[in-house]
Amino acid sequence: MASASAWMRSVTPPQGRSVATTESAAVRWLLVAVAVGFLLLFLLAPLVAVFAEAFSAGLGAFLAALVDPDALSAVCLTLLVAGIAVPLNTIFGIAAAWAIAKFNFFGKNLLVTLIDLPLAVSPVISGLIYVLLFGRSGYLGPWLAAHDIKILFAAPGIVLATMFITFPFVARELIPLMQAQGTDDEEAARGLGATGWQTFLRVTLPNIKWGVLYGIVLCNARAMGEFGAVSVVSGHIRGETNTMPLHVEILYNEYNTAAAFAVASLLAVLALVTLVLKTVLEWKSARAHARPDIATAEEVRV
């Protein structure tokens, strides 16, 4: 109990808050306990469960599940999908942010809303729209069949559905960032004789690099982990059109739980790496964008 009371004393208001605007130690402790307890139950327990289940049948079974040919082909397909979708969406994000943040035009708000649209669409519906387009009875289905082009239930369909799902991730990080930065720097560069490309590469890009990386990290995590949309368009052909999340589902539904969790643990590691990168990038970009005159002065009441 000694450690509990030490912990209780360690819950303090941040520096600079006065007596009048903070709660009693008991209330503070209670709120922290509620918050941490809630997160333990809802967030930490499932995360730990993934690794516990993955090793429940021993290390040998864990490794066997990972080197299984179907698992390896799922890993390859996942990397391929992310390798196509993420760069394309990154280029799009930068282009869209440039047009939206650096210029004024009619309909800007509408465009921003349209870019966010895929976030409001259920993943299953994101898959459905491609089925309606490319499916056997879809709009382009007969033509594709006549030319022997496979999109649905093949890699191209999976890539397209993933692109739709991860479409806004880079753009929505960059638009507010570039809007906040304004156009002064670029106009100054142009005034000093830089070409458009030089201006972008030497002035704009260094200012947004952490934001771009941040967007890429989020986009990649979603691209590798997407399940609902991909599930609808993939056709679940083992060793061919299964991404890692789909492989997890199949193993799980076959009651091969330990193997399912073994593959899932790889994805969980990816998620943890994403969280670490995200935290680091947030810290980096906060430092890069902190104006020295505003951010460094420590708050001292005088």
């Binding site: 499932p46 982990g225 997890v248 969790f261 998620a271 969280l275």
Partner: peptide, 20 residues
């Protein structure tokens, strides 16, 4: 940092983990 776990964890993984 943990707050973003549901964003970062693939949904199928969350699904089977929550079930477990």
């Amino acid at each position: 940092a943990l707050i973003d776990l549901p964003f970062a964890l693939p949904t199928a993984v969350s699904g089977i983990a929550l079930t477990a």
